[in-house]
Design a protein around this nucleic acid. Structure first.
Length: 269
DNA sequence: ATGTCGCTCTATGAGCGA
């Protein structure tokens, strides 16, 4: 079973690039972020024509997540638990059943968190957009604990907006005061990993120079000034099934690309 | 040093978010 995460940065602008990639890579499931569309306006036909079931959790203009799946999507839920007042569409879950295992899939678009406000001592304030990011990560940790307690194959995959380590950025020093790389951000990410999740890519590939996002600005792609912020976190029961994990870097060099590329795993499920 | 893109609004570009 081939499962991908892909921040597509606007579904209407990415239909061609996304269908081209689907036809070539043939994933069974794609967890999409930043669809930037309400559910009613999501263009389902190009994907249904290719045999994908489509479940969306959208909002107008910003954010929004979706799941495309050649397997039936069961028990679909929308929204990250823990704050009924949160109106941002950043979380969707569903279960797929393979030949040998059922897998719970969580697609997420973690808040960016910039700009960060700092106090007089240079400490980031748990306020504004950065506060929302850290609060959201606390809720993510709670959901992660519940998934771990279920002792089932499950994954939480998406655009985490977290650079885990210096080796995950071409120029780590330029991110030192950024919400994607602040110590508090990385610590919150580690707290989740330390519950027992396997970060799929790092279980397969070590060392620097592996990125999943290159900014549209300042020639970031041509200079390979990238960061690795799209991650797949697997429960032990899912990690036991993993046979591969790849960043589809070449997608960034094509016509009308997203600023992110797909990252996928294969599971013997 | 700077460099972009996608979206909404009611527009013919500005503002926002990333």
């Amino acid at each position: 079973m081939k499962i991908a995460t892909f921040n597509i940065n606007g579904i209407k602008a990415r239909i061609g690039a996304l269908t081209d990639w689907l036809d070539e890579a043939q994933p069974d499931v794609v967890l999409c972020q930043e669809i930037k569309s309400v559910d009613e306006a999501f263009p389902r036909e190009p994907f249904e024509d290719r045999g994908y079931n489509v479940e969306t959790h959208g909002q107008k203009g910003f954010n929004g997540v979706a799941i495309l799946s050649k397997l039936p999507l069961e028990d679909v839920t929308r929204g990250l638990p823990g704050d009924d007042s949160d109106e941002q569409a950043r979380w969707i879950e569903a279960t797929v059943v393979g030949d040998s295992h059922a897998v719970r899939l969580c697609g997420l678009y973690l808040p960016n968190g910039n700009p960060v406000e700092f106090d007089a001592e240079g400490k980031p304030l748990r306020d504004g957009k950065y506060g929302y990011k850290l609060d959201w990560m606390d809720r993510l940790e709670a959901r992660a604990r519940a998934l771990m307690a279920a002792e089932m194959p499950a994954m939480m995959a998406g655009d985490y907006n977290v650079i885990p380590q210096a080796e995950d950025a071409a120029k780590p020093q330029s991110w030192e005061t950024d919400a994607l790389y602040l110590p508090q951000t990385r610590a919150a990410f580690r707290r989740i990993l330390n519950l027992g999740f396997t970060e799929a890519f790092r279980a397969r590939v070590q060392g620097p120079g592996h990125y999943s996002f290159w900014d549209y600005q300042a020639g970031a792609w041509n200079r390979n000034n990238g960061i690795r912020i799209d991650h797949l976190l697997l429960t032990p029961q899912a990690a036991d099934l993993m046979t591969d994990c790849v960043i589809d870097k070449a997608v960034r060099g094509r016509e009308k690309p997203s600023d992110h590329v797909p990252v996928w795993v294969t599971l013997a499920a």
